[in-house]
Design a protein around this nucleic acid. Structure first.
Lengths: 341, 341
DNA sequence: CTTAGCGGATCAAAGGTTTTCATCGAGGAG
DNA sequence: CTCCTCGATGAAAACCTTTGATCCGCTAAG
């Protein structure tokens, strides 16, 4: 029967009820081997009887670990968070961390103030580790975090030296090759590319994939690609520019689904039929977008849920001081065929 | 100069350096009035010199407060989190909580397991309070949370009795009236409504607003409204059903922008021009949607950022044991005109 | 001159857990 | 029968902060 006494039971209470000392009770809770079966059972019984919950603060005080990790999103433009990709990452993080019973402390970092706050927070020892999403070039946050004596796992490659950093990346380059090869296999001859902003490494990797699959030199790249800034509107504009520059184009690989949606609008307005006149492949395979364009969008899938899951597993290992075989992991991408190519 | 000693400085160190006792140093940090100006200055100097950061665990242990609040999203269907609305709420929450220096612990609650985990967590005293987003009918999570001796502020009206509950709601009913009156003022005679799922109170409130603005009885409601389930696809289907049932309709008030996007597609396919033949008003004013439909969507704006901000302010007051004048607050909605009506 | 009052500082306890070290008892070896 | 070993347990220290009780040195009132 649950005691409805207002004060929460303490380990002392549990020990008393089980007829053992506080030390033994603690050992049971922490699954120490040096405890007799009888004691173990008695303590467990007392725990459930009293509805005992360890006091996190007290535990943290002595163990010097908090049982929480920070999840940092660095993004200078707040509106980018309307991107469904962001929601997906958060959801995946929440789930994966909950599964291992770790608190998720979410921090969104936009301004310099936010950076300072994040720094204080991380340096203050309020978390045991961090997951960092910082895709942009020369992000100050990365430099800050790097200096801290704190286990960190990055999503994708942060800008700068990767030495000793733990990260989980999607195979952006491989995905881009996949997409481009697919277009080539359809017999397309004039393939162009709408890239993401080149201050993000994922965009660069995708561009590089396109470049190598097409065997392009820098001049070719300059002619056949256009930056769409990872926005829908940017996708529209980039597509217009490419149509003007390469009127005979018959296929386009677009570095994100959102931009691809914009590009499709432009192609429609220009009277080009998809996929008859122009084949289109996107990237992200975000179903909420890809399934609702007309026609539905063929796209490269990167499994964000998996990425975050692997990041969490990786971080947990670091927290447990286990050795990790590979500091930097690469996740495969696959092509999902719909009607646009 | 920062001491690069690996161990973090403690209050004891600060006190020693300032030439006062630990107690005095503590009072300075907590802005107690009973401290001399000299002591205050000496302590502050020591704090900055050492880069001292209070140990959260130790503080939590003695004060019995954690400096963290939980943010709970209860949603049986995980995919709903792809809804941009969700990202917006999270972003607003992160910002508002960071501004008052409170940790945000995010929990997504889908399954019964998740509920149990949330219960353990909240009952375990790991947070000082909670923000709860649980729009659905008879959500078990609400009953669970209600029983806990924990300050909680709800987003919108949770199902069931509202006695003594703290909540911040948008004026859904008022917004629906606004939308409907606007359509009437345009001279429209046959106005119909695509509602949200009627197991969400926000959907019911919007339906009620429509009902009262149109002076409908239940029979009228049954004929002129259709449930679109707050999804794009649902919006399409509901619109089809309404077109079949009321072929002469000349306006529609749709209870969410996402559904409105679907409804617009259906109207296009049916050859009805918007707004000439059918005027359309949405709800949410989610720019990423409303500005990209064709034509751009007139919509009722509910300011989610503001809602969350007010929720946080409200919760903070509860945490400080301040009295709150109004337990239940209602935020106004406004009509944003674009081209669809 | 004594004493009450007061501002300001210190002392010490409390808060709940983990963990080291010592103790205790039983069982095996000599 | 005694000595050792070893496994299980308990006592107590340590983690760092807040806070009520206490104390000290002065001034103002009686």
């Amino acid at each position: 029967m649950l005691v409805s006494n207002h004060a929460r039971p303490t380990l002392e209470d549990v020990a008393a009820r089980a007829g053992v000392s506080r030390a033994t009770a603690s050992r049971v809770l922490n699954a120490s081997p040096r405890v007799s079966p009888e004691a173990l059972e008695a303590v467990n019984a007392a725990v459930t009887a009293l509805g005992y919950q360890p006091n996190r603060a007290a535990r943290a005080l002595v163990t010097r670990r908090t049982g929480a990790v920070a999840v940092l999103f660095s993004e200078p433009e707040p509106k980018i968070f309307d991107d469904p990709h962001f929601a997906r990452l958060i959801r995946a993080g929440a789930r994966a961390l909950a599964d291992v019973d770790v608190q998720m402390v979410l921090m969104l970092v936009h301004s310099l103030d936010d950076q300072a706050r994040a720094h204080r927070f991380l340096a203050g020892g309020h978390v045991d580790g961090a997951l960092v999403f910082a895709p942009h070039r020369n992000d100050e946050l990365v430099s800050i975090v790097k200096k801290l004596p704190l286990p960190v796992v990055y999503a994708g490659k942060p800008w700068g030296s990767l030495r000793g950093m733990h990260l989980v990346d999607n195979d952006n380059e491989g995905g881009a090759v996949l997409a481009t090869e697919h277009l080539k296999s359809l017999g397309r001859k004039k393939i162009v590319h709408v890239s993401g902003p080149l201050d993000e490494l994922s965009a660069i990797d995708r561009l590089n994939g396109f470049k190598s699959a097409m065997s392009l030199d820098d001049k070719g790249v300059a002619r056949l690609t256009e930056d769409g800034g990872f926005t829908r509107e940017g996708g529209r504009k980039a597509m217009s520019a490419l149509l003007a520059r390469v009127p005979s184009l018959d296929a386009v690989f677009v570095a994100s689904d959102l931009m691809a949606a914009g590009a499709l609008e432009t192609l429609n307005e220009a009277g080009r039929r998809v996929p008859e006149d122009v084949a289109v492949v996107g990237f992200d395979d975000h179903v909420a977008i890809a399934e609702h364009t007309s026609p539905p969008l063929t796209s490269v899938r990167q499994d964000s849920d998996e990425q975050v899951k692997v990041m969490v597993e990786h971080l947990v290992k670091l927290l447990r001081d286990e050795t990790v075989k590979k500091k930097q992991q690469m996740l495969p991408t696959v092509l999902v065929r719909r009607e646009s190519a």
